[in-house]
Amino acid sequence: MDLHALKGKNILFFLVKNFGSYNLIVDKLESYGANVIHYDERPANNNFTKGILRVAPNLIKNNIIQYYNSILKDLDNIELDYVLVIRGEVVPAFFKKN
């Protein structure tokens, strides 16, 4: 794919926001002219949430659903061209269908 073809495209991007890789990827996509709408893949990025997501994600299932529903609401009037998910440990099935 010619990355210059991303110019003017809307990309929804999910990645755990840690270290510098997140900003590097967003900056690179934007350098090709893409409009990057980015969210942390997790509903929260604190140690408690990270642990619960790995051990017993059902304990915060409602938080996950609420988080992704709020993202859908944010995106209500935006036509997406691409969705980029790196790792995708938390993205619920209902969100993938929308």
Rank of each mutant, 00 (worst) to 15 (best):
A34K: 02
K28T: 13
L53A: 03
Y68S: 02
A56N: 11
I37L: 13
K7R: 09
E41F: 06
Y67C: 01
K73S: 10
Y67W: 05
N63E: 12
A34F: 05
E41I: 09
L3P: 06
D76F: 03
D27C: 02
Y68N: 07
A34S: 07
K73I: 07
L6C: 04
D27H: 08
V26R: 05
L15A: 11
L6G: 04
V36P: 10
I25N: 09
N10T: 08
I52V: 15
E30M: 04
Y68R: 01
L29C: 08
R54G: 15
T49I: 15
L72A: 05
I11A: 06
K50A: 15
F14H: 07
I71P: 01
L75P: 08
N62K: 10
K17P: 05
V55L: 13
N45R: 13
G20V: 11
G51E: 06
K73Y: 10
G20S: 14
L3N: 04
I60Q: 03
F14C: 12
F19P: 00
N23W: 08
L15W: 11
L29K: 01
G33P: 07
N62H: 04
N63W: 00
L53R: 02
L12C: 03
I37E: 08
P57H: 05
L24W: 09
V36E: 02
K73F: 05
N47S: 14
I11L: 10
D74E: 13
I25M: 12
K61S: 14
L15K: 15
I11G: 07
T49D: 11
N45M: 10
N23P: 04
I52F: 06
L72C: 09
I65T: 13
K73M: 08
Y39L: 10
N46R: 07
F14V: 11
G51M: 06
S31G: 03
N69E: 14
Y68D: 08
N10L: 06
L15T: 03
N45T: 15
G33C: 03
Y39T: 10
I64W: 05
I65N: 11
S70W: 00
L59D: 08
K17Q: 15
A34I: 02
K9P: 04
G51V: 07
S21M: 12
S31N: 06
Y67K: 00
N10E: 06
I65F: 05
V55S: 07
S70D: 14
I64A: 12
K7C: 05
N18P: 00
I52K: 07
N63K: 14
G51F: 13
N77D: 12
I25V: 15
V16R: 11
R42M: 13
S31R: 02
L75E: 06
Y39A: 09
P43M: 10
R42L: 15
